[in-house]
Amino acid sequence: MPEGHTVHRLAAAFERGFGGQRVATSSPQGRFSDAAALEGMVLLGAEAVGKHLFLQLAPSADVDPGSPVVRHVHIHLGLYGSWTFAGDPGFAEAHAIGAPRLRVGETEESLATDEAVGTAHWRRLVPRPTVRLRIAGPCGLADLTGPATCEVLDAPGRQAVLDRLGPDPLRPDPDGTGRRRFVDRVRRSRTAIGVQLMNQQVIAGIGNIYRAEALFRARLDPFVPGVDLSRPLLEDLWEDLVALLAYGARTGRIVTTEPEHRDLEARIIERSRGTRQNGDGDADVVPREKSFYVYHRQSLPCRLCGAAVRSQDLAARAVFWCPACQRVRSRRASWTREHPAAAWALTP
């Protein structure tokens, strides 16, 4: 399932590719009946909140975003959802965001402009029959397949979704309200911090990779109850997540290791599909076997202490941790980090 930084990248891609433009909407699969009602509307903007994407559509570009005529296409990709893009050069930075890494169309297609006929090749791409929603504008198109949620909401419906979510570390938080909400919610519960980080009502946008890696960077035992954790510790955990997700939103990749640790025990235990990230084929990016401290490194030596990394099911998801490094278990434990998030965030 895509984590929060991916959805923020999606929102930015829609803003760049379709913002202020009149779009054509269709549902080749036929399971999104509202597509016809949205046909010809203008995309006013795109918003990411945790793992939820909202596309704001209105009859014209001069409509106030708060107007009752604005419709919000609410999308949650879930485990299998994906957006694929095709268009003019520069239309989309990545051809696919989400679970499947296929391009638009039945097969892998070239997205180059067909200069012989002077027509962009993407305009002739036939959608796969599994496409739930196609959005097309003057410069490109985007196809949605396999989402957990694809629905049209009015303003109260959008707000109802937001009211169910915890604070998103990637959304502006100038007065610290989001951080306080997170800290207060965690400290009120006896639920393990490793469970709470995956609860979208506690903090929005955190998935299994960020959960495992942030807890390791905090040297924090994933099984410690929230009530046993100090406010300063949780505030620092929040700030580290802000830095980690900001890096992910900027680069499209989850990289949590410090540069000096990346060549230490540079291994990962791949699943059948592997832990795929954007840009895996680019020689200049940090390879995935160097990107994580504990995620998918069960039974391998910890990069820092050499102890065997462990994994165990926790609330139906595997949690990964180092039993030697992650010993913080109480509000009285001293908590330090050798590599502050602020400095790490500047590392490419």
Score class of each variant (00 low, 15 high):
P2N: 12
T6N: 14
R16C: 08
G17R: 08
F18W: 07
G19Y: 05
G20C: 07
S26G: 13
S27R: 02
S27L: 02
P28R: 09
G30T: 06
R31W: 03
R31H: 03
A35G: 06
A36W: 00
G40D: 13
V49W: 00
H52V: 10
A58Q: 09
A61I: 10
A61S: 14
D62M: 01
P65A: 05
G66R: 08
V69F: 00
R71K: 14
V73F: 02
H74C: 07
I75C: 05
H76D: 15
H76L: 14
L79N: 13
G81Y: 05
W83T: 06
A86D: 11
I97E: 07
V104G: 01
V104Y: 00
V104K: 02
G105C: 15
T107M: 12
S110V: 06
G118S: 11
G118F: 10
A120I: 00
A120M: 01
A120P: 02
W122N: 07
W122K: 04
R124I: 03
V126R: 10
P129V: 13
P129R: 14
P129G: 15
V131G: 03
R132S: 15
I135F: 11
A142V: 14
L144M: 07
L144C: 11
G146M: 08
A148F: 03
E151M: 13
E151K: 14
E151D: 15
V152F: 04
G166T: 10
P169A: 06
R171P: 09
D175A: 11
G178Y: 00
R179S: 04
R185Q: 08
Q196F: 04
L197C: 06
N199K: 07
Q200P: 06
Q200A: 13
Q201A: 15
V202P: 08
A204C: 00
G205A: 09
G205C: 06
I206L: 12
G207T: 02
N208W: 01
N208P: 00
N208D: 14
I209F: 03
Y210S: 05
A214R: 01
F216A: 08
F216Y: 11
R217W: 02
A218Y: 12
L220A: 13
D221L: 01
F223W: 09
G226V: 13
D228R: 10
D228I: 02
L229C: 15
S230H: 04
L234D: 11
D236T: 12
W238T: 13
W238G: 13
V242I: 11
L244W: 07
Y247D: 15
T251D: 11
I254P: 13
I254C: 12
V255F: 02
T256G: 05
T257L: 11
H261T: 09
R267A: 08
R267N: 05
I269C: 14
S272V: 04
R273W: 09
G274P: 07
T275L: 07
Q277Y: 03
G281T: 03
G281W: 04
D282S: 09
V285G: 03
V286H: 04
K290P: 01
K290H: 04
K290W: 01
Y293M: 02
Y295C: 03
P301H: 05
P301S: 11
C302S: 08
L304C: 06
G306R: 00
F320G: 01
C322R: 00
P323I: 05
R327G: 14
V328P: 07
S330I: 06
A333H: 13
W335N: 14
R337G: 02
P340A: 11
W344K: 09
L346A: 11
L346W: 00
T347I: 05
